[in-house]
Design a protein around this nucleic acid. Structure first.
Lengths: 237, 237
DNA sequence: CCAAAAGTGTTCATCGTACACCCATGT
DNA sequence: ACATGGGTGTACGATGAACACTTTTGG
């Protein structure tokens, strides 16, 4: 504690800055990727579209802040989230010097707390129809999409955007949405199933077709085992 | 300006934090990767090994700060540098709450200003013999190496670590150092030359062999042209 | 019975990988 | 002449890419 004090002394001559944390929250619904955006009802830039973000508190880590913000908006806790980038242009926020750390999250859109979202003036917007955003938030979204496209090829993160049980046509549709590209059904299924990470269930989804499509679920445990032995997830786009 | 004032008012209730910026500086010499580390002669952790870093100033962007720090230590300006990660654990710096943004740099080790390095108590240390580092700096180094390994496969950044003129054996030796792996000479050369990015010079390097090895240089211009047409650098390890 | 989506295999080209010998030259 | 590092080509297996028809069933 004495040491802590002395360090405070040492650092005392230096500036402190505002740090914010912004979240890019992806969902998948109706065959397309969506982002959770808020219509700000507070200054600055009141009434404009924005990512959800808040200022960092002295007593929480970056990860904790990211999960706090996500939780407050969606009621979700166990969610895939990953640090994206730190945005530090001097004038990025016209109001004051604020450095923003961005995180991106992939959530199962079915699970979020719609009431909370509503209370926060937030809305799901299709990625193809994102309105202009405040500050450098559009850049953040671009970077997040780029990152998602990179990661979804080599990590099994796509499943985070789907319910625990999903069909192969749904999964393919998700990948097609991520990469804005139609994929060959046979090659996609062969590729996906050949990794041995999906378990076929004895149950069919019958909303989208008369024949019905079998449900599958991702085997997290098996993925960990294989990874420990040098296996790499890889889906060819 | 009136607006700026009003925004300051709005943000006024929020905390400011210390933000530091740390640089992981890679060089390549004597067949191995090296890092530029400082032996701190200031508190806290005086006498211990550390990355070079400083506190962020209110009036510079993250990139500007990174280049400032690198310049002050090495005298180098036009250098490959890229943001790595932001480290935000509450207790990462035992002295005070400091968030650190890390950048990693690849420099041609021949070009640095040895006197400046000396004045800053900095030393080149082989990656294989990195001493324990202060705070979470060892984590930063690990992350930087991981990133370098990812990037050197798909971007022509290896050349940043070499002089403008280099031989294929030197280039191969660099890749072998990056990946801690011996590579097949024929496959490496075939792969590298097939991209058409290297220009063979009429000059030989004769320090390392009697026969001498031809110098090559990287054609940045051609890389840009090809990239614009959808080409991707790719070297198989 | 028919429309609509689910499911299934094979062929070909490309790319990655393994591998061994000759060349040039300084001593 | 020889030791040392530089330079070169080929064959095989694995992987990615293209491609069309059958199955199921609700209406």
């Amino acid at each position: 504690m004495a040491q802590k004090e002395s360090h405070h002394e040492i650092y005392k001559g230096y500036n402190k800055l505002y740090i914010a944390l912004d979240c890019i929250i992806f969902g998948f619904d109706e065959g397309e990727l969506k982002l959770l955006l808020i219509k700000r009802n507070f200054e600055p830039a009141k009434g404009q579209w924005s990512l959800i973000g808040e200022f960092m508190d002295e007593n929480e880590s970056l990860h904790e802040a990211a999960y706090r913000i996500l939780y407050n908006l969606t009621g979700l806790k166990d969610v895939y989230m990953s640090q994206l980038y730190s945005h530090g242009d001097v004038d990025r926020d016209p109001g004051a010097r604020v450095i923003s750390v961005s995180y991106y999250a992939l959530i199962n859109i079915q699970n979020h707390d719609a009431q909370l979202v509503k209370d926060n003036f937030a809305h799901w917007r299709p990625l193809s129809k994102i309105p202009p955003l405040v500050f450098d938030h559009s850049t953040m979204v671009e970077m997040a999409l780029k990152r998602l496209r990179k990661e979804a090829k080599v990590k099994p993160i796509g499943f985070e955007l789907l319910p625990p049980k999903f069909t192969l046509p749904q999964l393919q549709s998700l990948y097609e949405a991520i990469y804005s590209k139609t994929l060959d059904k046979r090659n996609f299924r062969k590729n996906m199933l050949s990794m041995g990470l999906l378990e076929k269930l004895d149950e069919k989804e019958k909303e989208n077709s008369k024949k019905g499509a079998f449900y599958y679920q991702f085997n997290e445990q098996k993925y960990k085992e294989l990874t420990a032995r040098g296996f790499y997830f890889n889906i060819v786009i």
